[in-house]
Amino acid sequence: MAEKTYLQAISDGLREEMRRDERVFVIGEDVGVYGGAFKVTLGFQEEFGHWRVIDAPLSETAIVGGATGAAIMGMRPVAEMQFADFVSCAWDHLVTVAAKQRWRAGTPVPIVVRLPSGGGFSGGPFHSQNPESWFAHVPGLKCVCPATPEDAKGLLISAIQDPNPVLYFEHKHLYRRIKAEVPDERYTTPLGKARTHLEGDDVTVVTWGAMVYTAEEASRELDGDGVSVEIVDLRTVLPWDKAAVLESVRKTSKVLVLHEDTRTGGFGAEIAATIAEEAFEDLDAPVKRIAAPDSPVPFSPPLEKAFIPQVDDVVQGLRELAEY
């Protein structure tokens, strides 16, 4: 075990898989000489060469479409979007081609698309989005949103091994801020299994990605009130661990669904609806949602602060639930 940043953990996981399996290759913009916009693939081209660490033209369609073709020919591509926001330019190749090919034509498409996502540093409307809900609506895709360095590595290795197209959302605000112990050896973390980030008895927070830490800070503030908070980190939103969520809800009877993406039609709505359908009798309060308001992600710090759910928002939401 060694202490690693979230970013190092991603980088290590990817490098280890490339060493172990020569079918794995990286394609993206500036991933080679530059090592990627966030340096996840720094040094990779020296180690693996130009044909396994491929600097692509500015062509998201060709990157993801090309990864799909290569995957069908037996490779294990890991494509990088420079920012998650640009995945819109590859929409068709994920939603139209990759997601449906196994179902209609019997041809699996084992690709991973890495998506540096999320806000918190004035990236503005085009460098801050959390587009996991767009894709969680698409049967045939998988959406992974690690929160911890340990998961970042284990989930990435699982994503590469998975025979399906996997979108791997890596939160930019966690890259260098979050450090923790990461096992040195190779391990996989299963897709679709939630993790209890914090155990508690009174209120459940269901969340993922960077919001796990927002929820954690908020829970500390509630310690003084004698309210014990349980945090369920979904880890993957497609598939999502319904059983773990329902189990926690049955224990605490109160639940807050929290995400950084906007509210309407966000994945939290699916979770809230499922809880209402399947655990209504166990609830002692209406399911609460905290999410970004329905606007594009703003640039200026006070606006962005008003957009991204803050610790205070979560504290208030938890108190309301506790007092209900």
């Binding site: 396994r52 479409g65 073709g69 290569a70 020919m73």
Partner: peptide, 24 residues
């Protein structure tokens, strides 16, 4: 490879097949 309706979405896919051949 089975085509999708969206035209010409299979062209980047064909290029990806060629990329695999080139890498290997």
């Amino acid at each position: 490879l089975a085509m999708v309706s969206h035209l010409p979405a299979m062209l980047p896919v064909a290029v990806g097949c060629a990329l695999a051949f080139r890498i290997r």
